[in-house]
């Protein structure tokens, strides 16, 4: 009984502390994701669609600073072949140099290049966005309370402002965003993109796909992490049971 009280108190300290530190102001959507749970994986088709949404819509304002084009290929990538990755990278123009004449020059992107950024610097980004800074998206899912649910909520949360609510200049009403006034104009609507794989591009579909892509972008190593985790866990379980059996036998003679 005493032990139980102690265990419960310990768990409560930990759990409540963590949970209460993170009170969300707005209820989060309840989307289901392929990467949920300890066996969850990324759905490659979904990631590719999400990448299309990012490239055709979000990339106009948001960078993905921590990604290289090469990240799109390989076992932890989006399922593109090496040639496809090369072709995607080559669509970007990259400033390189200086060359032997001491001059900077433009060349097509290579897989080893980081993703092209929409703006040269933060000032340029603000100037183009009414003074607001579009944040880098490569960690956005990890950097917000609620993660993918929250980002999905923002993308699908645009509404007409309720009567009586005074909107700031250039602000848009959003159910999910704290304070409900967001500087980002509604980025996605039905048919904002035409999917290469023929999927019907509803707002919900686009939002779901791009959030899946951004979740991957925030942690491309999630799949090996969970896979390793299952193996480690099983190993520990067996080892612990063995240790318990041995312990019982060794201690059997102690009175």
């Amino acid at each position: 009984m005493r032990k139980l009280v102690l265990a419960v108190a310990g768990a409560a300290a930990l759990g409540l502390g963590a949970a209460w530190a993170q009170e969300a102001s707005q209820p989060l959507p309840d989307e289901h994701w392929s990467f949920d749970g300890i066996f969850g994986t990324y759905d490659r088709a979904e990631l590719q669609r999400g990448f299309q949404v990012y490239t055709q819509v979000c990339a106009a304002c948001h960078a993905l600073e921590h990604l290289l084009y090469a990240d799109l290929g390989g076992p932890n990538g989006l399922g593109y072949s090496e040639a496809e990755v090369k072709a995607i990278a080559a669509q970007a123009q990259v400033t390189d140099g200086p060359n032997d004449q001491g001059e900077m020059f433009q060349r097509p992107g290579r897989p080893s290049d980081p993703f092209a950024r929409p703006f040269a610097n933060d000032k340029a980004a603000r100037a183009a966005n009414n003074g607001a800074l579009p944040p880098d998206l490569s960690l956005i899912v990890k950097a917000r309370e609620g993660g993918p649910q929250y980002v999905y909520g923002v993308l699908t949360g645009y509404r007409e402002p309720p009567p009586g609510v005074k909107m700031g200049q250039g602000m848009n009403y959003n159910l999910q965003f704290p304070g409900h006034q967001i500087a980002m104009p509604q980025p996605l609507r039905d048919d904002s993109v035409t999917y290469a794989d023929g999927t019907k591009a509803t707002l919900q579909q686009e939002a779901h796909d791009v959030v899946a892509f951004l979740t991957w972008a925030s942690e491309p190593t999630m799949e090996p992490r969970k896979r390793t985790g299952v193996k480690v866990f099983l190993f520990l379980l067996v080892a612990t049971v063995c240790a318990y059996v041995v312990k019982r036998r060794i201690w059997a003679s102690v009175h």
Binding site: K226, G229, F233, L236, T240, Y244, V246, I250
Partner: peptide, 24 residues
Amino acid sequence: PYYTIKDLFGLGVFLLFYAAFVFF
């Protein structure tokens, strides 16, 4: 071997919790 094995068993239980957080 009495407390080495008991500590080892305890370590196993502890690592199960720790690994769950690290990996999941």
